[in-house]
Write a protein that binds this DNA or RNA. Structure first.
Lengths: 224, 224
DNA sequence: ATGGGAACCGAACGACCGGTCGGGAAAGGA
DNA sequence: TCCTTTCCCGACCGGTCGTTCGGTTCCCAT
């Protein structure tokens, strides 16, 4: 083992000056490292030993900060979900005409997605493999349903293109927005606010206005 | 739930008690069962024992049909990728004005996605964890790049909304289309062809036409 | 009816999994 | 200084992982 410091450059040394102090962890800092690993290799494919090595710790040390592997996941998912649900509570998402509320909701969702990129990315990859994942999946469904209802409200004001079932429109909208987590990396030339504005605009423009190609029957794709 | 035979209703075919024949497998039929499990629980989280049980076999029997767990994944991903690349070779995707080619490509991509739903779903969840996954990821990037180039060609004909960088448009388009695999289930009221027409139409309408909300700088989001 | 290949099984392998435990080093207040 | 708390470690546990292997059962062409 190493005498001073971890072998790999895994531990991002603190900006605390050129401190020679050994990087001691608190749960939040450890969470950051863990989530990064979960995204890189997948939750199930990441072992506690790998988590430890990435943090410059032995695997047993992790249990000083978290009760279990799943507890780490729970905390990460909770952080993402809390941030998303906070958007639903914002004034501009609750008051005013539906189309404006929908635009605000989408734009802010993208901003949160970028702001909490690792945590939201992890959330969007959850498939319901454990109790924790099922819990996250259900909370996420609640969020999606709120968006779907807003799309439906927009539709009832005539703001939706003909032939497009609101549920389908909501799914396409959310799919487009969520997919941003798969490629966006901060530090690029595209700012979060600009991306959010553009994505929301593209999405809303896509589901609204006059039809272009004729697509027949309605067909129900309800978000449940 | 069945009384005799495998615990879950995993084996679709004959009930074992009364029927004389038991379902024998060839690699393709076994692949179908395996991919279903991979989607349900994730590749890494699915054990060979679970695969066996789902197929009504012992786990060692699987090695008669596949050399390894990863070989199963490789075959599944290959099937999805072959189907997608076949679309690129279609006449209407290679000849004619870029906007029409793009529309055809998107529409056919959705149709393939629905047609080979489990395999494409698996492909879209790959994160590059093994050599096989890295290989699939790279092939997929080739496909995405072709779409991006078609979007860029469409842009140069003036078909793209102002301020929308073609690379970003392609990402949003692909994200929207790919997200269909997360919720679409065949047998619903929405046919594959109708869904494909509508999704392609919504996507293209979203990235084209006059701007709606003002989004500033271009910003590069190049697909590589 | 019989020989042979395809399909399948249970047992067992080494490696590694998530998690536990007792004890040692470092920080902080007194 | 001394003592308590926080943080961390190596060794270890029972269990499960993907894979191997010798042997059995089934189907079918001959």
């Amino acid at each position: 083992m190493s005498i001073c410091g971890p072998i790999l450059g895994d531990v991002a040394d603190r900006v605390r000056g050129a401190a020679k102090k050994r990087p001691r962890y608190d749960p939040d800092r450890l969470l950051e490292v863990a989530v990064q690993q979960f995204i890189l290799r997948g939750f199930e494919a990441t072992s506690m030993a790998q988590l430890g090595k990435a943090a410059g710790l032995g695997k047993s040390s992790i249990y000083h900060h978290f009760a279990s592997k799943e507890a780490i996941l729970h905390r990460a998912l909770s952080r993402a979900l809390d941030a998303l649900f906070a958007v639903l509570e914002e004034e501009q998402a609750r008051l005013g005409p539906p189309p404006a509320r929908l635009e605000h909701l989408l734009r802010r969702t993208v901003e949160v997605l970028v702001d909490e990129l690792p945590y939201v990315t992890l959330l969007l990859r959850v498939r319901g493999n454990s109790r924790t994942e099922l819990w996250a999946l259900e909370r996420r469904r609640h969020f999606d349903r709120e968006v779907a209802e807003l799309v439906a409200a927009t539709a009832s004001t005539g703001g939706l293109r003909q032939g497009l079932e609101p549920g389908l429109g909501a799914r396409l909208l959310l799919g487009m927005v969520n997919s941003i987590s798969e490629w966006y990396r901060p530090g690029g030339p595209l700012s979060a606010a600009d991306l959010a504005r553009m994505a929301a605009s593209v999405g809303l423009h896509g589901i609204s206005g006059a039809a272009r190609a004729g697509a027949a029957g309605a067909g129900g794709a309800k978000i449940d």
